[in-house]
Structure formats: C-alpha cells, structure tokens
Simulated assay, not measured.
Amino acid sequence: MLDKELQLIDKYTNHYKTVNLKVSESSVGWHLDHSLKVINLVNDTIKKSKESEFKKEFSGLSLLTFTFGFFPRGKARSPKRVLPPEVILKEDIENQLKIAKEHLKSFEALDDNQFFTHPLFKQLNKRQTQKFLKLHTNHHLKIIKEILR
C-alpha cells in the first residue's frame, strides 16, 4: 500500500536532524516520526473497528482534500498522540518504520467498512483510510524533500 512512501522514509532517516527554517520549523526527523505515528495509530485503530459500526457521513472537507489530493500546509494541528517527542532518536524512527511495514502487510485483509475516525474527516472506511494515509504521508515527504534541497 505505502511501499514507495516507506522506502522514502527509510531513505530520509539518515537526515533526521536536518532543519531548514525557510521550509519548516520542524526537522526531517519530526516529519518522519509524525508520519509513522499516524500510520501506526491509524492501523491500530482500524484493525480494532467493527465493520457493523461504520456510518457513512458526508464531509465536504474530506471530499475536497481527497479530490484535489493534498493537504494545505499549516492549516491543521496534529492531535497530541501523534506528535513526536522533544528529542527524536533515529532508532525510534527505525522501530516505528518496522512496525508500519508489519501493519501494512495485514491492511488488505481488513473488511471494506472497517474504519478510522479522523477528527475532521469523520469515519473513513478502509479505502478512504488508505487514501488518507497516502495523502498524509506524501504531504510530509514533500516537506522533507523541500527541507533537504
């Protein structure tokens, strides 16, 4: 599912301390750690969900985001549970990457209406969650590429 993105995360891990304040106040490591925390938390959540409890709701925000395929920078704030720690260690990023790879191996086996509830986008079923994870991860990878220029 996110094979290409996880390969890039692995590639950028060596640059985890790099900062470019013209692009972001946060380091490459912050963006990597945050992206992996989101992937892992969402996967933990969707696996525990019950397909029978999924309620399809319209969200104009998710329609716009998913249609245009990007997140505007600096508009949303991350929940505390997916914020990186003050001190980011390369080993922590590497461990989270291993967990993410394991999570994603079993993602396809999920039922179509197992879901993840996003604070702004509401309940996202398996297909929508997959798209969200791809968009979110690519959003941060794009920032990382700009930091490293």
Rank of each mutant, 00 (worst) to 15 (best):
L2W: 06
D3V: 02
L6D: 08
D10Q: 14
K11M: 07
K11N: 09
Y12N: 09
Y12W: 09
T13L: 03
H15R: 13
H15E: 15
Y16P: 09
Y16Q: 06
K17S: 14
K17D: 15
K17E: 15
K17W: 08
K17N: 15
T18E: 14
N20T: 09
L21T: 11
K22M: 02
V23T: 10
S24W: 12
S24C: 11
S27E: 09
S27W: 05
V28Y: 07
V28L: 07
G29M: 13
G29C: 15
W30V: 00
W30C: 00
W30Y: 15
D33S: 12
H34D: 01
H34T: 01
V38Y: 05
V38R: 02
I39D: 01
I39M: 02
N40P: 01
L41E: 07
T45W: 00
T45C: 01
K47S: 13
S49W: 11
S49E: 08
E51D: 06
E53T: 03
E53I: 00
E53G: 00
K55F: 09
K56S: 10
E57S: 15
F58Q: 05
S59D: 05
S59P: 05
G60R: 11
G60Q: 12
L61R: 04
L63W: 15
L64P: 01
L64V: 07
T65S: 00
T67M: 06
F68D: 04
F68T: 11
F71S: 03
P72S: 04
P72A: 05
R73L: 02
K75L: 15
K75E: 03
R77N: 02
R77C: 00
S78M: 10
P79I: 11
R81D: 13
V82M: 07
L83P: 02
L83M: 14
P84E: 09
V87K: 15
V87H: 07
I88F: 13
K90T: 09
E91I: 10
I93E: 05
N95K: 14
K98G: 04
K98A: 12
A100W: 09
A100K: 11
K101I: 13
K101Y: 12
E102L: 05
E102N: 08
H103P: 12
L104H: 11
S106Q: 14
S106E: 15
F107E: 03
A109G: 07
D112S: 15
Q114I: 05
Q114A: 02
F116H: 06
F116I: 04
T117G: 03
T117C: 06
K122D: 03
K122E: 03
Q123D: 12
Q123L: 07
Q123R: 10
Q123H: 07
Q123V: 04
N125M: 12
N125K: 13
N125H: 10
K126P: 03
R127P: 00
R127S: 11
L133C: 04
L133Q: 04
L133F: 02
K134W: 06
N138G: 07
N138I: 10
N138K: 15
K142W: 07
K142S: 12
I144Q: 12
I147Y: 03
I147C: 01
I147P: 01
I147E: 02
